[in-house]
């Protein structure tokens, strides 16, 4: 998909909570083998953090880099599957905290782990049509995993934000070269109304869901743009665990070096709607002008958004205007399972 006007990322920001729990500590509680753990450790949001607070910090960093006045932003979309209310938007809290209200669109997006890129696609459309000047897309999640379930090892927390505007008006960080969205009705993972924890069908998790949608979105985008994996300096895929993004990258012809900067899941877990966007912010932190980056999200239910972006000169002057993704990842404090349970409200009050 392409827009009428060319659209660029003019600012980006990340946020990862301070606390971590090691997968080995979760395995200790449930008596699981240490040999089959899906990652090393995951991020744990504090009691006073939620999707809105993490979104605000990531977006605040994006605004610093964009060098834009908050009231110039005409849309705030928060992609998440951990809304702060079932009915009442997270986006209005975020927009108010950032000083973007009242003249703006504001809404929450839900599409499991691809809600953040879904929000990004909408922002690209709004800006690319000339309807608004600039838009803020956020992926923010505190993932939930039932105690003892496989998801508990990977369900992390984090947020990433992008500010998009028509190319050439602000100082561009990266230009959107093209996007492709690919969705089908596939029941790999869901959470029913009123349920705290999600359910998943192993039968659909791998090939029918993650691999099929990620691969098709990426391949079709590359075909549409006439590109091949070697044309990209970096690639980012959604990261539900350490194995899947490496396997899908390899199957498409990308090398380990291409995905290395954006592969964060071993250190922070699966941050759901923020996962692939955090991979992108980490990659932008080290990218150079002219580098082409492929980002492919995946959301259960199921679908993928693929985007090709080309890094612009603005990256050099903007990347140091806010904390980098790895700055948040390398500052960490470990908690044991008891404190983790307290911070994630797993005790009955």
């Amino acid at each position: 998909m392409k827009t009428f006007y060319t659209v660029s990322i003019i600012g980006y920001g990340a946020y990862v909570p301070l606390r971590r729990i090691k997968a080995i500590e979760i395995a200790r509680i449930w008596g699981k083998s240490e040999k089959v753990l899906p990652l090393e450790e995951k991020s744990v949001a504090a009691l006073d953090e939620d999707t809105a607070t993490m979104a605000v910090e990531a977006a605040y960093n994006a605004i610093l880099r964009a060098k834009i006045q908050p009231n110039e932003i005409g849309a705030v979309f928060v992609g998440t599957e951990s809304k702060i209310y079932t009915v009442k938007p997270t986006a209005t809290v975020v927009a108010e905290a950032l000083g973007i209200t009242p003249t703006t669109l504001a809404s929450d997006y839900e599409f499991a782990c691809k809600a953040g890129t879904e929000a990004t696609q909408t922002c690209i459309g709004l800006v690319g049509s000339g309807m608004i000047k600039a838009a803020l897309a956020i992926g923010s999640d505190i993932a939930r995993g039932r105690p003892g379930d496989e998801l508990e090892y990977t369900a992390g927390a984090g947020a990433a934000a992008l500010i998009l505007a028509r190319s050439g008006i602000y100082e561009d960080v990266a230009e959107i070269e093209g996007t492709y969205s690919f969705v089908t009705d596939t029941p790999d993972f869901w959470r029913r109304e009123g349920q705290i924890y999600p359910m998943h069908y192993y039968r659909f998790t791998g090939e029918p869901a993650y691999f099929y949608h990620s691969r098709e979105a990426a391949l079709r985008l590359m075909n549409e743009l006439g590109l091949k994996p070697s044309d990209f300096k970096y690639a980012v895929f959604h990261q539900p665990n350490s194995k899947f993004p490496q396997e899908v990258a390899k199957s498409l012809g990308f090398t380990a070096e291409q995905i290395k900067p954006g592969l964060l899941v071993p250190l922070i877990g699966n941050s759901y709607a923020a996962s692939s966007l955090l991979g992108l912010t980490a990659t932008l932190d080290i990218a150079k002008p002219g580098d082409r980056i492929l980002i492919t999200s995946f959301g259960s239910g199921a679908g993928s958004d693929a985007m090709s972006i080309i890094v612009k000169d603005g990256i050099e002057s903007k990347r140091d205007l806010a904390p980098k993704t790895m700055d948040y990842i390398t500052r960490r404090r470990y908690v044991d399972y008891a404190l983790y349970a307290k911070h994630r409200s797993k005790y009955n009050k």
Binding site: L47, D48, E49, D50, A52, T53, V56, E57, Y60, A97
Partner: peptide
């Protein structure tokens, strides 16, 4: 040195 952050009260 301390810095402001937006949090749940």
């Amino acid at each position: 040195r301390v810095e402001a952050v937006f949090r749940r009260m």
